[in-house]
Computed example of a mutant assay.
Amino acid sequence: MTSFAHDFPFDPAYGRTLDELKAVPAPPAPDDFADFWRARHDAARKVATEPEIGPLEDERDGVRIHGVTYNSVGGVRIGGWLALPVEEPVRHGFVIGHGYGGRQSPGPDVPLPLPSSAAILPCVRGTGPRGLVAGIPDVSSAHVLHGIESRDTYVIGDCVADLWCAASALQELVPELAGTGRLGLLGESFGGGLGALALPWDDRIGAAQLTVPTFGNHPLRLTLRCAGSGESVRGYHREHPEVVEVLRYFDAATAAGLVELPTMVAAALFDPSVPPPGQFAVYNALAGERELLVLAAGHFEHAGLAEEVAGLVAARREFFGKWLA
């Protein structure tokens, strides 16, 4: 077990050893889990995304960065950023999700994992600054509860669709990526959980990398205190225990059991925001080629953070170089 000095009123390592974390299972899927998600994916693929590229905003690390907007399900227009290589022809593409709170810029997601790559970096609905939607809270503790009364209205399902539509928009803007299998998906925390839910149904994605993914093993998460959005779900569950039936359809570990494409998960031993047992449940359930990178901590500043980030960047580059080359 990894231990850090902290002032949280709970143990962010949750008393688990690495071996115990590697044994955390995924909950069983509802009988119509696949039908539910395939129908949502089919609807997202039918959206005319009509992407539009904005003016050049930055140029660094071999790419030009533009604003971008596109249509997603429910008539929502999503904003974000598009990165295009300065010189080389495009050989790879990436859809890159983000953590709760949105993203202010492409930030550390650029440089991209591989050279000669294009990427779309959306702000999914309800997250700032380019995904704000009237009626959807932009604070994570409220966003994660929006529409949770029903599997058909829960905002998480539409956020997953925003990633599918981002892939459609990227392939429309960079048509040489279509049908190549050289499209990768990345997601961290909130984006990692969305990514796991998105992956089983989309054959355009050739490989994926998820970092400290959330939404893994909801039945267990409901028993684990945390400092992240999961605490809001725990509070809601205390007043509305029937929500467990909705959460069954949005379990990243359950979805991971249907992911057959190569996937690397970076999971933390200590994480106050996303309990590590849920993170490891996602990795443990993966059905295809998989790689695990164990992090000392997630969502926590510590002395070795810079070295861990550098190690993750290098591992990600090697992983995608093997599967998207």
Rank of each mutant, 00 (worst) to 15 (best):
D7I: 15
G15K: 09
P30V: 11
D31M: 07
D31G: 11
W37Y: 07
R40P: 09
R40D: 08
R45V: 00
V47D: 02
T49V: 14
I53K: 12
E57K: 13
V63Y: 13
R64P: 02
H66Q: 07
Y70C: 01
R77I: 07
W81E: 12
L84F: 01
E87C: 08
P89L: 07
P89H: 10
F94M: 05
G97P: 02
G97C: 06
L112V: 07
P115T: 04
P115S: 09
A118T: 14
T127Q: 12
V133C: 06
A134E: 15
A134N: 03
G135S: 10
D138A: 12
H143W: 15
R151S: 12
Y154P: 06
I156N: 02
G157K: 12
C159A: 15
A166C: 07
L170A: 10
Q171Y: 02
A178M: 10
G179P: 04
G179I: 03
R182L: 14
R182D: 13
F190T: 01
G191F: 05
W201I: 07
W201M: 10
P213I: 05
G216I: 01
P219T: 06
L220C: 00
A227Y: 08
V233D: 14
E239W: 04
L247S: 07
A256S: 13
V259N: 01
V259A: 04
L261A: 05
L261C: 08
P262G: 10
A267R: 14
A267N: 13
D271M: 04
N284A: 03
N284C: 06
A287F: 03
A287C: 03
L295R: 12
A297E: 04
A303S: 15
G304M: 11
E307C: 07
V309R: 12
L312D: 01
R316Q: 14
F320Q: 00
L324Q: 09
